[in-house]
């Protein structure tokens, strides 16, 4: 089937893109739209971000502005969803809801923004709302309803496959924790030495943005560390930890972060936890404090909290990670 690629939809590679990219890109591609995703974060994008974004936003939100600026001239539409939450009661960061309208208000010359609003917790949205959104977006680009349905189905499937590949099942996780089994096979540890195991915890848009996190995954790889990210932890284990709290942690993505930290503090099965915090992130200020206090109360697994912003230097970061890894190695012995 030959599709004439005419319309171009731009999606900034920041914030929720890292969680939902299979769904979003597949949906538009299947509709016969050319999807333009902004490039990986570079220094230039960062400079643009700092110039354009409101000065009190968190670093990740600032980067979003830079990504929008990078693609705004080459696209017909920008896709910036207003995402409330997908959970019955738990919500997510308010920035996700306000972002589209803030951009529209601050930069009136932007291309038209497609901003579907979806929120289960506060507005009680469900399947019906999702179908409505799918069609209201789809009819902008095609007149064929069957094509829209097909695109939505594929998008959903892609997202599901993405989650299946990403999230470990409990068995694999258990095996990784208890035995010599390695998750990442890039290692060449020295003879007779078991590589240390670390949990890398943070928002998906920090973990996967190599520029924002100053290549922390690469640094860990170079030091021969076998790591697991908080994205990979099974949701059932996270929920199990959350049930133990005497309050409800109602920011949905923070549950993943605090749940992972609490899980490993309880199991004591790994050598260290690295928690990536974004400067002036509201939810992180809460979970960061809680994680630090839980780790203090049960100090069997060391916890390193790193705060990132546009001024964090790579050398300082590397030194701290090296010191932390040395500490973990010594504790292991």
């Amino acid at each position: 089937m030959v599709v004439k690629l005419t319309m171009k939809v731009g999606i900034p590679r920041a914030l929720l893109f890292y969680k939902f990219f299979p769904m979003w890109t597949t949906f538009f591609r299947e509709l016969g739209v050319k999807v333009i995703v902004s490039p990986n974060t570079t220094k230039q994008i960062k400079t643009e971000s700092v110039k354009h974004a409101p000065d009190e936003d968190c670093y990740s939100t600032k980067l979003y502005f830079g990504h929008v600026m990078a693609i705004k001239d080459e696209v017909d539409y920008l896709f910036i969803p207003r995402f409330g939450s997908s959970h019955k009661t738990n919500v997510s960061c308010p920035k996700f809801i306000g972002l589209a309208e803030v951009l529209q208000s601050m930069f009136p010359d932007l291309p038209p923004i497609i901003m579907p609003f979806y929120s289960t917790a506060k507005s009680g949205h469900g399947k019906r709302r999702l179908i409505y959104l799918i069609f209201s977006i789809g009819f902008k680009f095609t007149k064929n309803p069957f094509r829209i349905i097909k695109a939505a189905r594929r998008a959903y499937k892609e997202q599901k496959v993405h989650y299946e590949n990403l999230i470990l099942d409990e068995k694999t996780l258990h095996k990784w924790e208890q035995t010599e089994y390695l998750l990442n096979n890039f290692l060449s540890p020295e003879e007779g030495e078991r590589p240390i195991k670390i949990a890398l915890v943070g928002h998906s848009y920090v973990l996967n943005d190599d520029f924002a996190s100053l290549n922390i995954q690469q640094i860990l790889k170079e030091h021969g560390v076998d790591y697991i990210t908080s994205e990979q932890l099974p949701r059932s284990l996270v929920e199990k930890q959350m049930d133990k709290l005497d309050y409800n942690l109602y920011f949905d993505y923070e549950r993943e972060i605090l749940g992972t930290i609490m899980h490993f503090i309880e199991r004591k099965s790994i050598d260290g936890i690295i928690h990536l915090i974004i400067f002036s992130c509201g939810p992180d200020s809460i979970t960061g404090e809680m994680a630090a206090r839980y780790a203090q109360r049960d100090p069997s697994v060391p916890l390193l909290q790193l705060t990132f912003d546009e001024l964090t230097s790579e050398t300082g970061l590397e030194t701290r990670i090296e010191a932390f890894l040395d500490l973990s190695r010594r504790r292991k012995k």
């Binding site: 506060k122 309050y247 404090e289 809680m290």
Partner: peptide, 20 residues
């Protein structure tokens, strides 16, 4: 309460801090 605001977290964090 539970909303897009940190106010609902005040008491759990306060509780931990005061306990410590």
């Amino acid at each position: 309460f539970q909303a897009h605001c940190r106010f609902g977290y005040y008491w759990p964090v306060l509780k931990m801090i005061l306990e410590d």
